[in-house]
Simulated assay, not measured.
Amino acid sequence: MDNQEMAAQDQQPISVGEWVLYLFLFSIPFVNVIILCIWAFGSEPNQTKKNFARAGLIWIAAGIIFYLLLMFLIFGTFSSMMHDMNMQTV
């Protein structure tokens, strides 16, 4: 494939049918992360897919960080409550 063919493929819009298939695949746990990594870091010629994959990975990373912070907060609160309850019963 020469540069003109690759540029033409990069400019082609993604059809509705393709988006329906992609959205279905993204709804499957772990498959979505694998596909996003392949698109984001692989040799995907379509810049729209590459940018979408990078944005998706950023959202996933932000969600994981938020989840971990929330779990530490809940665990810390629960630990503190249990410690206070033990101190009151002694």
Rank of each mutant, 00 (worst) to 15 (best):
N51V: 11
I14F: 00
M1A: 06
A62Y: 05
A8H: 06
E18K: 00
I28D: 05
F72V: 06
M85I: 08
Y22L: 03
I58A: 15
I65F: 09
G56H: 03
A61G: 12
I58Q: 07
S27R: 02
G42T: 14
F75W: 14
S79V: 11
L68P: 06
D84T: 10
M82G: 09
T77I: 08
S79D: 04
F26I: 03
Y67W: 15
V33K: 13
V33W: 14
Q9T: 11
A61Y: 01
I58T: 14
D10P: 01
T48A: 10
W39F: 10
Q4A: 10
F30C: 07
W39I: 08
L70P: 08
Q88R: 08
M81C: 08
Q88D: 12
T77M: 14
L57S: 02
L73A: 15
K49S: 09
E5T: 12
E5P: 02
S80E: 08
F24Y: 12
L25I: 12
Q88L: 04
F78A: 13
P29S: 03
I14V: 01
N3W: 13
A55G: 10
D2P: 00
M82I: 11
P29F: 01
M87G: 07
S27E: 01
N46D: 11
M85Q: 11
M85G: 09
V31N: 10
Y22R: 04
Q11G: 03
L68S: 07
Q12G: 00
A55M: 14
A53L: 03
F24Q: 10
M82Q: 06
M82V: 13
I38E: 06
V20L: 01
L36V: 06
F75D: 07
L25F: 11
I58H: 12
F52K: 08
T89A: 14
Q12D: 09
Q47K: 12
I60N: 01
W39D: 08
G42W: 06
M81R: 12
W59Y: 14
S79K: 12
L23D: 07
T48P: 06
V33Y: 14
N46P: 09
I28Q: 12
T77K: 07
Q9L: 13
S43F: 10
F52W: 07
F66P: 09
N3A: 07
T89E: 13
F78S: 12
A62Q: 07
E44R: 07
I64K: 08
L25G: 07
Y67F: 09
I60C: 12
I14P: 00
K49D: 04
M82C: 08
K49N: 02
V90E: 13
V33N: 06
A7H: 04
F52Y: 10
T48Y: 15
I14T: 02
W19K: 00
S15H: 00
L68T: 14
Q4V: 13
L70D: 14
S43V: 12
G17H: 00
V31M: 02
D2K: 01
F24L: 05
I34F: 11
E18P: 00
K49A: 09
T77D: 15
V31F: 08
W59K: 11
Y67V: 10
L73G: 11
S15F: 02
W39R: 15
K49W: 06
W19M: 03
V33R: 14
Q12H: 11
V20R: 01
W19N: 01
